[in-house]
Amino acid sequence: MQNSKVFEKKRIAAKTLVKHLALIALIFVILIPVIFVISISLNPTGSLNSPLWPKDFSLVHWKYVLGIPYIDPADGVLKTSPFPILLWLYNSIKVSTITAILMLALSTTSAYALSRFQFRGKQLSLLSLMLIQMFPNIMAMVAFYLILDFIGAHVPLLANDTHGGLILVYLGGTPFNIWLIKGYFDSLPKSLEESAIIDGATRFQAFYKVMLPLCVPILAVVGLLTFINTFSDFITPSIILKSQDKFTFSVGIQIFVSEAFSARWGQFAAASILGATPICLIFFAIQKYIVSGLSAGSTKG
């Protein structure tokens, strides 16, 4: 009896060990690309077929990416990167931050109306919001270009090849965010505003002073999601932005891929890590909410 219990315990321990080993092996395989990119960014030769563990380490690619003068291992000459990679990153962060903030301002009020007011055609407008945002916006790029051309002739700040114009185009993408925020409003009890209104608040005050503070969690998530999506988009900015010093990171990094990819692999690796880090950090900070938000957005009516 005792023996079989010990045996059973051992069996379970062995099973757990196997499970751990299997998981570790699996995770290693999955993370090879990430490990590889980190190693390449530190490998002075930095070609596509470098081994996973470099023979020697150097910061030459990082210096290149950060715009610090470096000694080119190929010819031993002191050089500086011709590409303003940090500026691209700054552009991306700037555009994404402004877009996220304005997007929140635009979609919160709409979401509130769709959640709280009863009006004719509400169900229909909800459905059409959802349908229209599914429209493939590849051809819209041409329209964006023409619209910005038109607006830019009168307001130079919002022309093509400006960050203002790019942000303006992004602000059209409200529906998805409206859906997410509306879902959250739906989950808040109506009695909260009703009591505020009985206490003499106007409807807008009830929205602004009672409901809005309660929504901070979802607003943070929607804001950061918008930030991530804007940061990651490369089609729209590649159509709208033309001059190199206005590029966003996602457009700029294409340069490494389009010409002599193999030779630039090390620089590309360092640049990728640089660009991915802010997004990774944000992602892990709001990871828990992203999942509940994403599933809520698509399951709640």
């Binding site: 635009l106 229209i132 051809m139 819209a140 329209a143 964006f144 619209i147 185009v169 059209g172």
Partner: peptide, 12 residues
Amino acid sequence: TFLFFMILPMIF
């Protein structure tokens, strides 16, 4: 903004 940058491109 929705009209300008979603509906208008769609009509276009």
